[in-house]
Amino acid sequence: MPYTADKPPLAETPEQLRARIPGWGADLDPADRPSYPREVRGLETGAHWDLPEQQQERQPRERSIEHARLTPVFGTSVPLKGLSGVVRRFAYQRFSEGRAAHWLLLIGADRVDAVESHLASFATTRPDNPVTETGVLAEPSHHPLRSRAGRVDVRHQVLDPLVVVGPWVLSGVVIYRGVRAVVRQARSWGP
């Protein structure tokens, strides 16, 4: 069969499918499909401008060098700051989106941002708490074993705690060793 011109016959006729499945064939005609063709002109969008007004740039806004200008509208959720901000600004100013360095620097800056932000949180009244923030407290009440029984992806989920907790443990060890070294040094200078 597969090596002839015929396609294997279907188990159900169009009439059977129409009877079994609500709406079967309602969009058979491509003209009824809203994204056919994908590009069309003359759609009513509600816009009443040719070029939108420019949103005020209250502080220097990073942008891709593949843009000729700052776009008329942009997000302002988290302005650049700290070392991660330096790396991000460099990535935007130096490399186009076509360069791997652009994205790898941004990914690297994300990791720097997380470390910076965790450290900064310890100087606030609400330090980061990896227990509550990872949501693992939901585990006991949501069938942790039954939900994972026989699942193929569970073998890699064991890496998740390593990724989340590992840096915290590593940081703790580094801080402990640092403090211990300082204390030992101080004692050695003692009377």
Binding site: E39, T45, P52, E97
Partner: peptide
Amino acid sequence: CGTCFFCARGLYSNCHNVNPNATA
């Protein structure tokens, strides 16, 4: 935005006037 080159052709998800961080 509804009026850029891409929005004018129905490619609303590819608007050129709203994302300074990337053209992709």
